[in-house]
Simulated assay, not measured.
Amino acid sequence: MPDGHVSIEEAFTAGHDERITAERAYELHWADLLDRDARFTCVGSGCSAPLICACLDKPEQNLRIRPYFRSYRLEDHADTCEVAHGRGESKAEKRPDVFEAERPADHFRAPAATPRADAVASPAQRAVASASAVSRPRASHYYRLSSLVQKFLEHRRDKDLDEATVEIGGETQTYEALFRNVYRQKVADLLGTRAVWWGTASLRATKEGGYYLRFSRPFRHDDAELRPTITLTAKEIDAYPVRRLLRARLDKLIAESDGYCVVFVWAKPWMPKDAEKPFVRFYVNNLDHIDVRGPEILEELRNTSRVASP
Rank of each mutant, 00 (worst) to 15 (best):
P2L: 15
D3F: 05
V6Y: 09
S7E: 08
E9M: 12
E10K: 14
A11E: 07
A11R: 08
T13Y: 11
R19S: 13
E23A: 15
Y26W: 15
L33D: 05
D35G: 15
C47A: 09
A49M: 04
P50N: 03
C55Q: 13
L56S: 05
R73E: 10
V83C: 07
F99Q: 01
A101G: 06
H107L: 13
H107A: 11
A127F: 04
V128C: 04
A133Y: 04
P137L: 13
R138D: 09
R157D: 04
D160G: 06
E163C: 07
V166F: 01
I168L: 13
A177L: 08
R180Y: 03
R180T: 11
R184F: 10
T193K: 15
R194L: 02
V196N: 01
W197T: 00
L203M: 08
A205N: 05
T206M: 06
G210L: 07
R214M: 09
S216A: 15
D223I: 15
A224H: 06
I230M: 06
T233M: 05
P241L: 06
V242A: 11
R247C: 12
L250M: 14
S257K: 05
G259C: 03
G259R: 01
G259T: 01
V262G: 00
V263C: 12
P269R: 02
A275R: 10
K277Y: 02
V280S: 10
R281L: 11
F282G: 03
L287A: 08
I290K: 01
L298M: 14
T304D: 09
R306G: 14
R306K: 14
S309V: 13
